[in-house]
Design a protein around this nucleic acid. Sequence first.
DNA 1: GTTCATGCAAAGGATTTGCAAGTTA
DNA 2: TAACTTGCAAATCCTTTGCATGAAC
Lengths: 136, 136
Amino acid sequence: MLVHDESAAVHLLQRQAIKPTAQRVEIALLLLQEHQHLSAEQVLERLRRRGKAVSKATVYNTLRLFAARGIVQQVIVDPERVFYDSNTSDHFHFYNVDQGALIDLAPDELHIPELPALPSGTVQEAVDVIVRIRDK
Amino acid sequence: MLVHDESAAVHLLQRQAIKPTAQRVEIALLLLQEHQHLSAEQVLERLRRRGKAVSKATVYNTLRLFAARGIVQQVIVDPERVFYDSNTSDHFHFYNVDQGALIDLAPDELHIPELPALPSGTVQEAVDVIVRIRDK
DNA sequence: GTTCATGCAAAGGATTTGCAAGTTA
DNA sequence: TAACTTGCAAATCCTTTGCATGAAC
C-alpha cells in the first residue's frame, strides 16, 4: 500500500504495531511513494540525497521489519543484494541482469494456471516468477 | 547432461574447452551423477566425505566456470547461498524455505502460457518459477 | 523510568581474488 | 616451456549484531 504523506505513513506503521520513529517514517515515505524495487543500499543512498541522516544499521533493520510485517516484499533475484518491493500484491517481475533492475509485469500479462500439488507436509508460501532479460 | 564415469566427465569438459583437471573431474562426477541442487558448501562437504581434497577456492571457481559454460545452472532463491542445478533443461522449482531445499517440478506440472512482450532493447535470458513452500 | 530504537563499529558468512607453487599440453 | 590451475590466506561485499546513547510512552 502506498502512502504519500507523513500522517498516512505514521498510521500505516501504527496499524502494524510499529513505533513510528522519524527514521521509519522517512523510509516508509521513500519506499511507499510509488511502486518500486530498491535495495538497502539504494534506500540508504536516496535518504542521504534527501538530506536525511539514517544509519546503515537502521535501514537494514527497518527494511527487515517492514518485510516481516508485509509492508514491503523481499525479492530474491540476485545473490548480491535483496530488493524490497513496495508493491505487495500478486505480480511477477522482469529482471534486467545487465542493469540490476526489476520491472513489474502487469498482473494480466502472465497468468499462472493451476499450480501443481505441493510436496506432502508443506504449505504454499508464494509463487515467484522472474523473467530474466539482458540488454540487446 | 549427466555423466557417470570419469571418461565421460573428461569428454564433457573437453567439449566445453575446459581443462579436465583432477579437481574439476571430481566436481563434475559429484554434481552430474544425478539431477540435484547443491550449494558450493555442500559440494565441498561431499567431496571431503568422499575423501577428495579440493580447496574451497577451487570449488567456487569451478562451479562458477561450469555455470558460465552451461554445464550446470545457478538457482537464486536464497540470499544466503547460490544453488547449482545439474538439470539444465527447462523446468521450475519448489523451494522449501524451512529446509533450504530445492525440488524440481515435473516439466509438465506447470505450463507457462505466452510470455509477455519484453521491454524494448532487451532479450530474454531465462524464466524462473519458484513455488516457495514451508513445512506444515 | 522502562522499554524500545538508533548508530557506530565490529562480527559474520558467502564468495572472490592475489599470488606463489604445482600441473597441463 | 608457456599457459593455466590450485590452494591458502586475505580481501570483499552485503547484512546482522553488540552495546552504549538517546528517544518514546
